[in-house]
Design a protein around this nucleic acid. Structure first.
Lengths: 231, 231
DNA sequence: ACCTGAACACCGTTCAAGT
DNA sequence: ACCTGAACACCGTTCAAGT
């Protein structure tokens, strides 16, 4: 606690805050919001925190763990309350999933990180608790509810992860466009099914597709028994 | 065609094959099989092809496009034929999806790449054609079949992408383990639903979960009409 | 016209050496 | 004991300059 260094160095710049896991994650979130997750690198973080990259490894094991921590922080923004007027578990669950999807849609690289490094923070557990609670009101078996949770979260996460639009500038939107072009360019003789389904393959707004996916999963989950389940 | 250089340099090493997109992708596939997709970098590829990295950009636009090409090459291994004895479209489709999943499971980084850079190569189109053909035999509407295709491929791709096991050495399996530990450590008072569903949340073998997911999706897809569909 | 050496602007992670 | 400078071993992509 006793100052060993010259007080002058203290006045030169604002007091450098002590490094901590919390402060590192806070900074990573700030950089991600301003410039995207890809800029929240160990080196950049160290620079921002006025230290060397090696120092960060005292508080986080590696980049994957850091990104998992950032994800959990973001999951705190998911709205878990249903509207009070809404009594139906299905619509409350839909609202939670829409909120979760919306949060991930703002940061697709984070959705991709979520597919690799499974989260396990407190906000993730809160989300899991809420989804299980709502889904169990369907009357489906415990096994169906438990396995169904994974499918719901996986579907939303994968949909957000696919939503590339790297810099959402229209110059580099070639990705989905290339697939659409390939589907259109297909020969009707060699690919009759693609030709027959052509308008529908690329139809639908994102909200419509997300709504339909949710309905598909809920219907499937509540009607498909888990193999070997005892109840 | 006329030799301008000393013949001696020709004898020093085997003739350097002419660069081509095909040869680049072949080499990337070879490196991926031997050491994983993460080693199939532009620089490593250039080294392997005895040139500088800049030369590759004459044939591939960037790393994402290269990985998409590698994925399409791998998709050539997906078994699209159902067994002859099997007449049921559902079981034939299941076999195709299991084969697709199996191919991606051998290279999870490729599954992750597939979620980002949508493929559009010939083997991808062959797979799409086959899945649409089989799924349309369910009698579901064109819209349900078209949107259902996306869900089936997305589910299998995301499941493979999640299957991290980076170097499949047991020392770094902390990832899913951490989630399991977090679920177990949860307080029964604050997280009653997690506690109630606990055994089921982590139960099930991968084949059982994959089989159930397929059944959930097929049931949901064939029973959920697409909003605003005309047929 | 076609190709590429060399440079630019970065990465993650480790470990010996400092305080 | 705790922290970190500097190094190691890489990246993707571009562009001026060569053949």
């Amino acid at each position: 606690m006793t100052a060993r260094k010259e007080p002058i160095s203290r006045r030169d710049r604002p007091a450098k805050p002590a490094l901590s896991r919390r402060w590192i994650v806070d900074t990573a979130v700030r950089i991600m919001r301003a410039e995207g997750l890809e800029k929240a690198t160990m080196r950049r973080l160290a620079q921002e925190l006025d230290t060397g990259p090696a120092s960060l490894y005292v508080y986080v094991a590696n980049t994957a763990e850091l990104h998992a921590a950032v994800l959990d922080r973001l999951l705190g923004e998911v709205d878990l309350t249903g509207r009070d007027s809404e009594q139906d578990w299905r619509e409350q669950l839909r609202a939670v999933m829409v909120s979760y999807t919306r949060v991930l849609f703002e940061h697709p690289p984070l959705a991709r990180a979520a597919l690799v490094a499974r989260p396990s923070g407190e906000n993730y557990l809160r989300l899991v608790e809420r989804v299980l609670d709502l889904l169990s009101r369907s009357g489906a078996s415990r096994e169906q509810v438990a396995w169904g949770l994974d499918k719901l979260l996986q579907d939303a996460t994968a949909t957000a992860a696919e939503h590339a639009t790297q810099g959402h500038d229209p110059t580099s939107e070639d990705d989905w466009d290339a697939t659409v072009r390939a589907l259109h360019a297909v020969d009707a003789t060699t690919h009759p099914a693609i030709t027959a389904h052509m308008p529908a393959l690329i139809s639908g707004t994102m909200p419509d597709r997300i709504r339909w996916s949710f309905d598909v999963l809920i219907y499937g989950i509540t009607h498909t028994p888990v193999p070997g389940a005892t109840d």
